[in-house]
Simulated assay, not measured.
Amino acid sequence: MMKTISLEVEESIYPNIIGFLRLLPEQSVHVLEDDSDTLSAEERIAVANNQARLQAEDDSEFENWEKENGQV
């Protein structure tokens, strides 16, 4: 089961945080940067939609995440 966290960090340490997260195994961590300078308008909409679904406790899109990624 995947969990979502949001972090608000100082701009000066942002690159270090992202760099650290990208060192973690891709099957365990999916980084969705919510930085208007790096995300396209389409990506920002997708992130906002996913966050809204999760806040509404609608995780149906993620139900088979582990099966699809070879984890059972």
Rank of each mutant, 00 (worst) to 15 (best):
M1K: 04
M1I: 03
M2R: 05
K3M: 13
K3E: 06
K3G: 01
T4D: 12
S6G: 05
E8N: 09
E8G: 10
E8W: 10
V9A: 03
V9P: 00
E10C: 10
E11R: 13
E11M: 08
E11H: 14
S12I: 02
S12W: 00
S12M: 02
S12D: 08
S12T: 02
I13W: 10
Y14N: 04
P15W: 01
N16A: 11
N16L: 03
N16D: 04
I17A: 13
I17G: 05
G19F: 00
F20H: 07
F20L: 13
F20P: 02
L21H: 05
L21Y: 08
R22V: 12
L23K: 15
L23A: 05
L24Q: 09
L24A: 13
L24R: 03
P25A: 08
P25C: 09
P25S: 09
P25K: 02
E26C: 10
E26H: 12
Q27D: 07
S28K: 09
S28E: 10
S28L: 10
S28F: 07
V29R: 12
H30C: 14
H30I: 14
H30P: 00
V31S: 01
V31H: 00
L32F: 04
L32K: 14
E33D: 10
E33Q: 11
D34T: 02
D34M: 08
D37W: 02
T38K: 15
T38M: 06
T38R: 02
L39G: 00
S40P: 11
S40N: 09
A41R: 01
E42Y: 11
E42H: 05
E43Q: 14
E43K: 06
R44P: 08
I45W: 09
A48W: 07
A48Y: 15
A48N: 11
N49Y: 05
N50G: 15
N50Q: 07
Q51N: 12
Q51F: 02
Q51A: 11
A52P: 01
A52T: 06
A52Y: 04
R53A: 07
L54Y: 03
Q55E: 13
A56P: 10
E57W: 09
E57Y: 09
D58C: 06
D58A: 06
D58E: 02
D59T: 04
D59G: 11
D59C: 09
S60M: 05
S60H: 02
S60I: 02
S60K: 14
E61F: 12
E61T: 08
F62Y: 04
F62C: 09
E63H: 14
E63W: 00
E63A: 03
N64Y: 15
W65K: 09
W65P: 06
E66V: 00
E66I: 00
E66C: 00
K67T: 10
K67D: 09
K67S: 12
E68P: 04
E68A: 04
E68M: 14
N69A: 01
N69H: 15
N69W: 07
N69I: 01
G70D: 00
Q71E: 13
Q71R: 15
V72A: 13
V72F: 03
